[in-house]
């Protein structure tokens, strides 16, 4: 078979992206090869521009093109309420609910000793500083896996002495799904977290 070193480098680069396996990377690469030159160029330009223009907000560490980010700068947001998330994309997920009117703090990951990620690798120190500056409730919205839970437990230990109210996102049933399709852990946590109606 003919060797295609540049094409193989493209395959390898695409495969490093999250959620992209060998099959998807091959499909994407072939699509890019067959696409009009301007389509491929537009993709390159979009990647370059997004990388040049966006940065991490110095206050909340979410992705932003302005400093501070639109949420931190918005006087309509409730500064007494702070949601702590692991990654910048978690902010987008919570924003899509249009439910939360407070502000965010992105940790930049979760505690994971096996991967060498400790408290000093996360934005914890400036979280504590923000909380000391007029925050009344911190909502811990880390992922419900071992690392996310341990990070939440760690933050509880660091935040409680500051006298702030600390809450954790409830775990429950997906809306619109039948009970029989819920996994048992979700169902049992929904039961223990049930509420009066």
């Amino acid at each position: 078979m003919t060797r295609l070193p540049s094409f193989e480098r493209l395959l390898a680069a695409l495969e490093r992206l999250p959620g992209i396996g060998p099959k998807s990377s091959r499909r994407l690469a072939h699509h890019l090869m067959a696409a009009a030159p301007e389509e491929a160029e537009a993709l390159l330009a979009a990647v370059r521009e997004a990388r040049e223009r966006t940065r991490s907000c110095s206050t909340c560490h979410a992705l932003t093109e302005e400093e501070p980010c639109a949420i931190c700068a918005d006087p309509g947001r409730d500064g007494r309420l702070l949601a702590v998330v692991e990654e910048p994309h978690d902010v987008e997920v919570l924003e899509r609910t249009r439910e939360f009117r407070g502000r965010y703090h992105v940790l930049g990951g979760a505690l994971a000793p096996l991967r060498g990620i400790g408290p000093d690798d996360l934005h914890v120190t400036d979280l504590l500083a923000r909380v000391a500056d007029g925050v009344e409730e911190v909502i811990l919205a880390t992922n419900p896996n071992v690392e996310g839970e341990a990070t939440a437990l760690y933050l509880v230990r660091r935040l409680k002495p500051l006298g702030v109210r600390v809450t954790r996102l409830a775990l429950g049933l997906p809306v619109g799904a039948a009970l029989e399709f819920a996994d048992e852990l979700t169902l049992s946590r929904s039961l223990s977290g049930r509420r009066e109606v």
Partner: peptide
Amino acid sequence: RSRLQRNRLLSAPHPPDRDELLAFTDA
């Protein structure tokens, strides 16, 4: 999973962050 994470903290050459160890102990 939490035991493996905790073991990594316990076996670190330097003393682990107290709150971090307690968090994985709680988990």
